[in-house]
Simulated scan of single mutants.
Amino acid sequence: MFKSLPGWAGLIVMLFAAAFFLNAAAAHAAPVQVFPTRADPLPPPSVRFQEGVAAYDKGDFAKAFQIWLPLAQQADLAAMRNVALMLRKGEGTPRDPKRALWFYEEAGSKGFALAQVNAAFMHLEGDGVPKNLEAAAFWFHSAARAGSPIAQYNLAVMYERGTGVEKDLPKALGWYALAARSGSQPAIDRLAILVPSLDGPKAPQRAEAPVVNVLPAPQPSPSAEQPAPAAPVAPAIVAAPAPQASTPETPAPAVAEPAASAAPPAPQPETNVPGQTVVPDQVPVAAEPLPPVFQNPEDNPSDRY
């Protein structure tokens, strides 16, 4: 095919073909979709956006919605999240969870971590939409990669409980550690429970009891002289006492015998070798740690981070 082309032209065509097949293979091997993450905060809010925040704080939800909706349609990510918030709660507009989830996921697909967390919780709780634990894990993972401590904690909870993902304690500990490094107190508390409950090193073989040499008692020598037996002594004659006048005998007062006291218990034989630690028959088993609880952040319309 390439023989009729000049040498340099054939080489270029071959390079283009190789690049096409490599890209197709890479696209086929991609396991999941990964959204871009924003390392920097959103641009400063516009005056119009701040007017919507002021109206929302005053409780004028209808005015806030009318201000934020055009901004959301112009791809202002914070305005998209606020519109989703009002649609989810039915503030200033009829409640519409499906449209709310669309705005959350649209802002999240552009790297807005706060919207990703909100989308994850709508899927996790089934807030007006069908519960989808796999989608919740996906959005928590996206926000966790962006550095959100609460997303890192909640993703760790999902790995520990096996909710929406395969149960994986090492991954749970890793995400707990990242959340704890960012200052998440629930993650610190969870690590304090899980880490001590992990299996420790295998117990080594205990040392054998020491052998004690007991010397035998000395025996008398058979050649030692035995003492001569003593000669029998004749019994002495004792005279009978003189008869005494009979007098009525007074019975002696009865003496009460002391009550028999309970004998002390017999000592138990010593079974432990000196110098060894006494090990009880039953080793106490650590209590199973309580299951973790998800942490849902509070919605703040002025947040742009």
Rank of each mutant, 00 (worst) to 15 (best):
A231N: 11
G90K: 13
A107V: 01
P97V: 00
P94T: 06
Q295Y: 08
D40F: 01
P170L: 05
P301H: 04
F20C: 07
L198E: 03
I67F: 03
A245M: 11
A259C: 00
T163N: 12
T277V: 07
I188T: 14
T271N: 04
A245V: 02
M122F: 05
G92L: 04
Q66A: 12
A224L: 09
P269M: 14
Q74F: 10
E134F: 05
E288T: 02
A24E: 07
V212D: 09
G111M: 05
A259I: 01
Q226M: 09
L101Y: 04
G90H: 13
V293A: 03
S148W: 04
E298Y: 09
D127H: 13
D281P: 03
M80Y: 07
A266H: 10
T247Y: 04
V165I: 04
R48V: 02
A30K: 15
P248E: 03
V211T: 10
V279Y: 01
D127N: 15
A24R: 15
D299V: 03
G52S: 07
L5S: 09
L77Q: 14
A217H: 12
Y159T: 02
V13D: 12
G164F: 05
T250W: 09
E166D: 11
P222G: 06
V255E: 05
S109Q: 15
Q185I: 06
M86E: 02
L11Y: 10
D76L: 11
P289I: 00
A25T: 11
D199Y: 02
L15N: 11
V233K: 15
Y305N: 08
R88G: 09
A192L: 08
V32R: 15
A26M: 13
Y153H: 09
P258Q: 06
A177C: 09
D199Q: 10
V34M: 08
G126V: 01
P196A: 06
E91C: 07
R81K: 11
A177F: 09
K167H: 08
R145Y: 06
G128S: 09
A259Q: 09
A245K: 15
V285W: 00
G126R: 11
E105N: 13
P248D: 01
V117M: 09
E125M: 12
R145L: 05
Q73F: 01
L101M: 04
P258G: 06
R95N: 08
G174D: 10
V285L: 00
H123F: 03
A9W: 09
V233R: 14
K58A: 04
A236W: 12
F20M: 02
A136C: 03
G59F: 06
Y176P: 05
F35H: 12
M80V: 01
A120H: 04
P264G: 04
A192Y: 07
I150R: 12
P289T: 00
K98P: 00
L169T: 12
A9K: 15
N82I: 00
G200A: 13
A107R: 14
N82M: 08
E257M: 13
A137Q: 12
P41A: 13
V255Q: 07
Y159P: 03
D40G: 01
R81N: 06
P45D: 05
A78K: 14
N300P: 00
A209N: 11
Q152P: 04
R81F: 01
G52L: 05
L5F: 11
S261K: 15
A151D: 01
R181Q: 14
R206G: 07
L215K: 15
W68F: 07
A18P: 03
K63V: 01
A263C: 02
T93C: 13
P186M: 10
G90V: 02
P6E: 08
H141T: 06
F61Q: 10
W139F: 03
